[in-house]
Amino acid sequence: MSAQSLQTEGKLLKETMKKICPPDTAAMEQCQKRWDSIAKPLHSLGRLEEVLIQTAGMTGSDEVHFGKKALIVMCADNGVVEEGISQTGQEVTAVVAENFLSGDTSAAIMCKAAGADLFPVDIGIARDTKLRNEKIAYGTKNMAREWAMTRAQAVCAIETGIRMAEELAEKGYEILATGEMGIGNTTTSSAVAAVLLEKPVEEMTGRGAGLTSAALKRKQEVIKKAVELHQPDRTDGIDVLAKVGGFDLGGMAGVFLGGAAKKIPVIIDGFISAAAALLAATICPEVKSYMLTSHLSKEPAMQMILEALGKKPLLTCEMCLGEGTGAVAIFPLLQMAEDVYKKMSTFGEISIESYKELK
């Protein structure tokens, strides 16, 4: 991306934030009434009912529909890998990312089973790839020594995600899931989460794809060094992203913002996706109303991030794979909830007395 184009970035982000408004409470009330009229015990589908009610608020209609589904996978490399914080090298990112195109990844296989389309994006892989090219740079800088990216690049990453969400919304997609691929991105996510939640790095940092205890300690020390060196401003999500984040985090944050502006739900995957959701909520708090949660990642910071966002997981599967696999796993659940909501008879239709709320 040219210096001139980077200088013009920021307009789309500002315009997007202006479009994000509170959910439609009237639509939510209508959805609740429909659930209460269905011939089953009140609230007996629990969180599945809540998700549809929340979605009605997002879309402004109680005619909830999860028709066209998509997973957007942001793929990027992280310069902090130079510090020996990962079990594998940076070259793995490109190999796995291109496997999304052949269908030879966990997320690709799960998307096919769930009837969802997959859109992998090269937002900053360290070499050229066959993916959709939205590359901001060939990986970030090493945050242990300098800012991960410039502020302009951080905004550019966010706006890349916004454009992806807008494009898919215009093509008729009604729900989006977020995923990522990038060696070293649990390190950047832990740094971002530690700053935004004002928590000790040790509490926010796990083993990622698999580290020894010694390597985990090294990872924590690297994150602490980066945070102390750059002093990111926790009230400024863009500043945090630029100093200790990654292009994939920025891209996913943009998807959350873009989806909210288009009034469609966006699903949080695991820890890395949740860190991006936290970034998006720091930039625009109202975006939280347009987020759906999927599962509870094994990473130690996941529960704390969800609590900060006011969210609860639908699944507890002890997953830690990434790629968007947890987000895709709830697509069938949402479809089943929609089918019950639309197809099941009401108490009136089968001429029996409806359940009443017990005091």
Rank of each mutant, 00 (worst) to 15 (best):
A3R: 15
A3C: 08
Q4K: 06
L6G: 01
T8G: 04
G10T: 04
K11G: 01
K14P: 00
I20N: 00
I20S: 02
P23S: 07
D24E: 06
T25E: 14
Q32I: 07
Q32S: 10
S37H: 06
S37D: 12
A39L: 15
P41V: 14
G46P: 04
L48G: 12
L52C: 01
Q54S: 12
G57S: 00
G57R: 04
S61I: 05
K68T: 08
K69T: 10
A70H: 05
A76C: 07
Q87W: 06
Q90P: 00
E91G: 14
V92C: 03
T93V: 09
T93R: 05
V95Q: 12
V95R: 06
N99T: 13
F100Y: 09
L101S: 00
S102E: 11
S102L: 09
S102F: 15
T105L: 03
A108W: 03
C111E: 06
C111Q: 05
A113W: 02
A114W: 04
D117A: 15
L118S: 01
L118F: 15
E134L: 09
G139P: 15
K141V: 06
A144L: 05
W147T: 02
R151C: 07
V155R: 10
C156K: 05
C156P: 01
A157E: 02
G161W: 01
L168K: 03
A169C: 10
K171V: 01
I175C: 13
L176R: 02
A177H: 02
A177K: 04
E180D: 03
M181D: 04
G184S: 14
T188N: 13
S190Y: 04
A193R: 01
E202N: 07
R207S: 02
T212I: 13
S213F: 13
L216C: 13
K217E: 09
R218Y: 03
Q220Y: 00
L229R: 06
H230P: 08
Q231R: 14
D236T: 03
G245R: 13
G245Q: 13
F247H: 05
G251Q: 05
G259E: 00
A260D: 03
A261Y: 00
K263A: 03
I264C: 10
I267Y: 01
D269V: 11
I272L: 12
A276E: 12
L279F: 06
L279S: 03
P285H: 04
S289Q: 12
S289W: 15
Y290R: 08
Y290N: 07
E299G: 08
P300M: 02
I305Y: 02
L306C: 10
A308M: 08
L314D: 03
C317S: 11
C317N: 10
G322S: 01
G324N: 12
A329G: 12
L333P: 00
D339K: 15
D339F: 14
V340Q: 06
Y341G: 02
K343C: 10
M344P: 04
T346Q: 07
F347Y: 08
G348L: 11
E349D: 14
I350C: 15
E353G: 14
S354G: 15
Y355H: 13
K359Y: 14
